[in-house]
Design a protein around this nucleic acid. Structure first.
Lengths: 88, 88
DNA sequence: TGGACATATGAAACAATCTTCATATGTTGA
DNA sequence: TCAACATATGAAGATTGTTTCATATGTCCA
């Protein structure tokens, strides 16, 4: 796993909306589709990438999958990126 | 300027080698080409993207351009990304 | 059991990105 | 001034990424 791949996965507005939402609370795929403003299918593809880069994890509960951020690094990277953008 | 674009610019191994080198010390374009292991032209294109996203700045001295990181956020984002990758 | 539901995935079309090549700009020193 | 140098940039081909559509898997409940 290469550092550039981690940033690559964060380099997409839809995935960042997912990450931002998950920084607040755990959500299922359907809710994430609404939050991210795209289809279930697209969200599912994005979530796979986020899983592969260990940015999110999930727990299964029946037929639902509840996603959350993997660890605090991600929230920190997100926050620092936002600070950087805002001061520019 | 959108957050995803900032991560996009970090999402490339060549540009990350540039950022890593500049985290240590200021360097000119020719040196960066050697460090990054690619052509002057490619480095110059990459540097333009890094400039546009305020990730690097430079000072001109004669015909040389000396590049350095724009601020500490970038070094922190880089470090945190590396920590995240290493613990996976 | 069977149908509705939630999520996941493969393939393909379309869009975005990276590198290379050619060339341009500005600087230095002979 | 002119040639060599350091860097910058536009265009194009090759590569990679994103979304959509179709379909698959597993779960729930009537």
């Amino acid at each position: 796993m290469i550092l550039a791949d981690t940033f690559q996965v964060l380099a997409n507005p839809t995935r960042l909306r997912i990450v931002e939402a998950l920084a607040r609370r755990e959500l299922c795929v359907g809710d994430l589709a609404v939050v991210a403003g795209t289809s279930h299918s697209a969200v599912s593809h994005h979530l796979r990438q986020l899983r592969q880069m260990k940015i999110v994890r999930y727990r299964k509960e029946g037929r639902m999958a509840f996603y959350h951020l993997d660890d605090d690094h991600i929230a920190q990277i997100f926050r620092m990126g936002r600070e950087h953008v805002e001061e520019s």
